[in-house]
Amino acid sequence: MAVDKDKLLQFLLRIGDSTLVLSHRVSEWCGHSPILEEDIALANTALDLIGQSQMWLGYAAEVQGEGKSADDLAFLRDAWDFRNVLLTELPNGDFGRTLLRQFLFDAFQSVLMGRLIKSSDETVAGIAAKASKEVAYHVERSADTVVGLGDGTEESHKRMQQALEYLWPYVGEMFESDEVDAAMAEAGIAPDPASLREEYDALVGRVLAEATLTIPEGKFAHKGGRTGYMHTEHLGHLLAQMQWLQRAYPGCEW
């Protein structure tokens, strides 16, 4: 049974937009990190994420079949057409919050990519195989840093706990399921996100415990990014910066 093209497109945009938006956020650190090694690490992470976005959005454009490119999708859509999870568009905050956001996303990616490698869609499986090697490095580093800062000084611990309280309500959205996910699961293209939660909680729980951080009790989850229902007010500002050159000088190349 052929999968519904529009649903496959939505699925690809959800992953591709999440990596793209997070890549831009992480790149904002370039030249501002506390030490040189961290600056290089963040820039490298942003680079990997943008490389992954190129693959996901490149395939999304192909599925869409309107002759568009990955660049067209990245630079010429408005906030309401983006399908990234809200977590990725949140402002960086301090270094600790940036790395905690990274860890919460990397952990999700590492679980998801592990499943997508077995996707019935060959292109999805190929991209996932490529991305999973990079994700393995990302999650190792972000987990290490979260432990270092969480179980660090009184000040760093306090900031990491505050960051966790700010970010945690954005974790739930990643595991939401709707008719797009149901169609992907039925076609064997991707797992139902809800089925990833157990593995995610085990990984995140272990690292946060080691970091001496307490996961907030509330179950409330901010939603609306991956469905496109409503983004936070932060996405528009991010896109204004990311897209302005292509908007002001359409088709500009160098």
């Binding site: 090694e37 290089i40 690490a41 490095y137 580093r141």
Partner: peptide, 13 residues
């Protein structure tokens, strides 16, 4: 190990 990342994506420090 100093850092997981180096001057190019393929290297660590």
């Amino acid at each position: 190990k100093l850092s997981q990342f180096g001057s190019t994506p393929c290297k660590a420090q």
